[in-house]
Amino acid sequence: MDLANQQRVKDAAEKFGADNVIVILGSSDAEGAGIYAETVTAGDPTFAGPLAGVALNLPVYHVFEDVVRAEADAGEWENQISMMEMVLDPAALAQAVREMREEHGQSVL
């Protein structure tokens, strides 16, 4: 996760409180999604950004997880996201984020 996005997540968690923030990832690569999920839960594994050594333990989901889809408007999902369901591997992406959330974060949905 790039340094600016780490800072944005950190700022949001500080401003609104970790209990009031959910991170939704749209990453297209399962390994990358896992690293992003780790960054916003256990801290930046590369120790390069503002979340290095900072465990926010935030609830983090991939947009392709069923619990997120259930929250979305069906029409907007069709317009904005359905094409990418055919392109990517939704199950692998969801699993990569779920594993990290269950290990370091919180499940709130």
Binding site: D29, E31, G32, I35, M83, M84, M86, V87
Partner: peptide, 20 residues
């Protein structure tokens, strides 16, 4: 580097749009 196969992703997107 975790960014995937960029051209392949583009082709899949174009093809998926063709399906839609």
């Amino acid at each position: 580097a975790g960014a995937g196969n960029v051209p392949e992703a583009n082709y899949k997107m174009i093809a998926a749009l063709g399906v839609m």
